[in-house]
C-alpha cells in the first residue's frame, strides 16, 4: 500500500473529535433544523417531481415510523438523521476519486466537491442513506442567489453532497481562536441545526473532551444509542431514545 495513504484504524475505542447528541424525547419533528441546514449550506430545492423521486437535497431529515394500528397507534419519536461522521466510514474506501476522504485534523468525513465524478458508490455504501446527489443543476431564479452563504461551495450537477457538521463554522471558530492565541472553547459555536432547534434537542461539541457539554450529556443520560453501531462504523452521533 502506498505509504502516503494513512491506514484507517479500526479500533473499538476510537472516538472522533466532533460529535452530536440528539435527544429524541424532546425532538418535535418541527423541521427547523432542516430549514436551518438548507439556508446555511446553500442546499438546492429540487421541486415537487424530483422530490417525489427521492432526490431532494436534505442533509438532515427527521425520520418517524408508525407502531401499532388504530387506536393503539404511536408515532416513534422524531429521529433527526444526518451524516454520522463515522470513524470508520463505509463511504470512504469505495470512492475511486478520493472525493470522500477522512480528515485527520477534524476527524470528519469530507466531501471534496471538485474531485467528485458522480459514481454514487459512496451513497450506495452509506448505511444511513444520508448522501444526496445533484441529479441536475437546480435552478435558483434571481434574486434568490443573494442569500447564498459565501463560506459554502455551491454544488453543481453530478456531485455528491452531505452533512459536513458545518465545517465552515468549525474552521471560522478555530481561526478566530488561533488568531486570539487561545484554545477553542466548548459551546463557542455550533452547527446550524443545533443553533435553530427550538427544543434544544441537538447538541454539538467535542466528544473527545470529557468536560464538554456533549460528553457530559452522554454520561448523565447513561443509555445513548449509536445507530448501526454493529456495522463497525464508529458513528459520532449519539441518540437518546424517547419515552
Amino acid at each position: 500500500m502506498n505509504s502516503k495513504i494513512p491506514e484507517i484504524k479500526l479500533s473499538e475505542e476510537q472516538t472522533g473529535k466532533w460529535g452530536m447528541v440528539i435527544d429524541q424525547d424532546i425532538c418535535t419533528g418541527c423541521q427547523a433544523c432542516v430549514a436551518a441546514c438548507a439556508m446555511e449550506n446553500n442546499l438546492s430545492f429540487v421541486g415537487e417531481v424530483d422530490a417525489g423521486y427521492g432526490r431532494s437535497m436534505h442533509w438532515i431529515r427527521i425520520e418517524r415510523f408508525w407502531e401499532g394500528e388504530y387506536p393503539e397507534v404511536k408515532m416513534t419519536p422524531g429521529q433527526p438523521m444526518m451524516c454520522q461522521q463515522c470513524g470508520s466510514a463505509p463511504c470512504e474506501p469505495v470512492c475511486p476519486a478520493f472525493a470522500t476522504v477522512h480528515s485527520q485534523a477534524e476527524q470528519l468525513n469530507l466531501q471534496v466537491y471538485n474531485r467528485c465524478v458522480g459514481t454514487r458508490y459512496c451513497a450506495n455504501n452509506c448505511p444511513y442513506q444520508v448522501r444526496s446527489f445533484n441529479w441536475r443543476d437546480y435552478v435558483r431564479p434571481e434574486p434568490l442567489p443573494n442569500q447564498l452563504n459565501p463560506d459554502v461551495t455551491v454544488r453543481r450537477m453530478g456531485v455528491m453532497e452531505k452533512c459536513t457538521f458545518c465545517i465552515q463554522r468549525i474552521h471560522k471558530a478555530e481561526d478566530k481562536a488561533k488568531s486570539e492565541g487561545r484554545e477553542l472553547t466548548d459551546g463557542e459555536f455550533t452547527t446550524a441545526c443545533a443553533q435553530a432547534c427550538p427544543a434544544n434537542a441537538i447538541t454539538f461539541g467535542r466528544i473527545d473532551q470529557p468536560e464538554s457539554l456533549v460528553s457530559q450529556l452522554i454520561r448523565k443520560h447513561g443509555h445513548g444509542v449509536k445507530h448501526l453501531e454493529e456495522l463497525g462504523t464508529l458513528p459520532s452521533v449519539t441518540y437518546f431514545k424517547g419515552g
Binding site: C30, Q31, A32, V34, A35, A36, A38, M39, E40, N146, Q147, L148, N149, P150, A192, Q195, A196, C197, P198, N200
Partner: peptide
C-alpha cells in the same frame, strides 16, 4: 446581502431559537 437568520439569544421570547419559517 442577508445571508442567514439566527435567533436573538437575548430575546426573552425565543432565546436564540427559530422555527422553520423564521429560517
Amino acid at each position: 446581502r442577508a445571508i442567514k437568520t439566527e435567533g436573538n439569544t437575548n430575546h426573552p421570547l425565543n432565546l436564540g431559537k427559530t422555527c422553520a419559517r423564521g429560517q
